[in-house]
Amino acid sequence: MTMVDEAWGLEAKRVFYRYEVDETHKVLALAGVDFEVSQGEFVVVLGPNGSGKSTLAKHFNALLLPDDGDVWIFGMNTKDSESTWEIRRSAGMVFQNPDNQLVATVVEEDVAFGPENLGVKPQDIRELVANALEAVGMEAFNRHAPHHLSGGQKQRVAIAGILAMKPKCIILDEPTAMLDPAGREEVMKTIKGLNEEMGITIIHITHFMDEALYADRVIVMNEGQIVMQGTPKTVFGQSHIISQIGLDVPPVGKLSQELCLAGINIDPGALTVDELVDELCQLKSGI
């Protein structure tokens, strides 16, 4: 069966995956992950290095297949080799290093790479490329060489390259790890826009805690398992678990929690500057 069925969303069922360190040694990267994403969601996956989040991401793109368990992408099982290309088309993937995923020497040629692989007619490719570049705000750079772009711009081109394949979902494996703050913001705003305006499902993997604030749902992974999930508020509210596995609560979240501990009557889950300012000012007018 190679039909995209949107109603299905993405699903990982008791997924186990081991990778070989050397001939005698195998490490359990995923230890029974159960995970469901419905169409249109914005999910952020957090976790320390080696927690299995990248491994999980690659399962959603059929780049890795589970040793045990199943991964379903819009109703297609990743183990069914006939569905592989349709899975990769409908659940596109953006990687960490902005340099190592651009193939061509000109931006528009690179964006065309995916549709070309799918055998789309030249005339239609032009349109797909133009639309994709516009969606990420890079249309003015269509004839530029990738190596002259900033990190954030390169990642937006990479996202456009996926968009040109008309995906239902984009999986981003630490796309901001190598960017400066301006580049990170560019990328985050771009994917937030794609999620809101085009209804594209986003699974965003990151080390930066503040990026979790964009999410509808945050998944926290540790040692190959999902240890926590919920809204950013509930997840960062459990600060002891967060710090136990070596992650951080964003500074404003920390401040809200400390103020609560100091006996101030505000929501300890305030995570952004504006939220906390509002909380504090309400407090004043309440008296």
Binding site: N61, L63, W85, F95, V103, G114, E116, N117, P122
Partner: peptide, 15 residues
């Protein structure tokens, strides 16, 4: 990254 973008050689590819 190329594989993830459905690259499978020149067969069936358009330009």
């Amino acid at each position: 990254a190329m594989e993830a973008r459905c690259y499978r050689g020149g067969e069936g590819r358009t330009r």
